[in-house]
Write a protein that binds this DNA or RNA. Structure first.
Lengths: 179, 179
DNA sequence: CTTGTAATCGAACACTGTGTCTATTATAAT
DNA sequence: ATTATAATAGACACAGTGTTCGATTACAAG
């Protein structure tokens, strides 16, 4: 992806990516102008437009990069035909924790959430039944997990990834009222 | 709220509200200018600025209006100390179905979701335990429900509110794997 | 190390939308 | 009918946009 790029291009994109994340931690992207973003990043405004159409396209690119990372992540861990293993889950949580600031921003974006939904739905689950309820159940579960992840990161990730993985599994396999 | 307002003011706000909803069904609010919105609504741009600072403030107001409606809704139905009754839930789903277009738009907004979370958390639930897991469980459940609602509306609400209420209750009380 | 290529830069440009103001007209409340 | 106030058209300075130019700089390949 970003391997075979000019050093300068990678530097520019990285600067813009990080600066956008910083600014978005303070205010919504709608209040961030390309001008301000470039001044903050120390990048020429013309250079920005050479890569992106606007702030939103930049954000979208960042989202897709992270999705790509997560995809590799899942592919690596789900070799053993057992989806949603504890270690599997813990790995993702650790990755999220390490990039907590960026993740917190991205998890607030609808488009990023949609990508995550699609990503999870690639995992081959097995269901008891095959009725119309199936898709709703899955959506319920994914959305619930993402909400837990978001809350966890917002609180500063006080619990360990292991604890959180155990919690999520307990909810999924034990039910919401198993506490 | 909007009872004791000049007819003209109410008309103007209603026009802007509906037009914004229409436009947001087609494209993200970031691509909607105040100028376009006002032309579409047939409202003078100066009049817009007399009421709102920008598109986002207008959207926020609409969100708060709907939240207020839902609040009354909950207050009416939760008189009997039994939260999350089937009829209770079905009523809300019917209300959402009747305003499907608007709801679909609003459910994609982070701020609106936050409001809904706060609203649901006003309901006095009783838990088995009191540990740190409690808040995560609740967030999981709320987020899951909203996701189901969103999907249902996006599909054009094929199932009846009664069926959906039953499904949600089955997930909550029966667990995710009870299918 | 040298050289051709390409990315960044500063500066300028026309253009669109913004936010505010004024004088004028239309409408609601009493 | 009178009064108050909301909506209007139009104008204004201003900020940000998106594009262009030539000059400069950094890179990668040979």
């Amino acid at each position: 992806m970003s391997e075979n790029m000019d050093r300068r291009v990678r530097m520019t994109k990285a600067l813009l990516r990080d600066t956008l994340a910083e600014l978005m931690a303070k205010k919504p992207i709608s209040k961030i102008s390309v001008k301000e973003l470039c001044q903050e990043a120390g990048v020429n405004r013309g250079t920005f437009y050479a890569h992106y159409a606007d702030q939103y396209e930049l954000l979208r690119q960042v989202e897709l990069e992270v999705i790509e990372n997560l995809k590799n992540f899942l592919a690596h861990y789900s070799d053993d035909r057992m989806p949603i293993k504890e270690g599997n889950l813990r790995g993702i949580l650790e990755y999220a924790r390490q990039n907590a600031d960026l993740f917190t921003v991205l998890l607030g974006e609808q488009s990023f959430q949609n990508d995550l939904f699609k990503l999870v739905k690639l995992v081959p689950f097995q269901y008891e039944t095959e009725g119309w309820e199936k898709t709703y159940i899955l959506d319920f579960a994914i959305s619930g997990c993402l909400s837990v992840l978001r809350k966890w990161l917002q609180e500063g990730a006080p619990e360990s990834p292991g604890e959180m993985a155990a919690l999520v599994l307990k909810i999924i396999y034990g039910g919401l009222l198993s506490f």
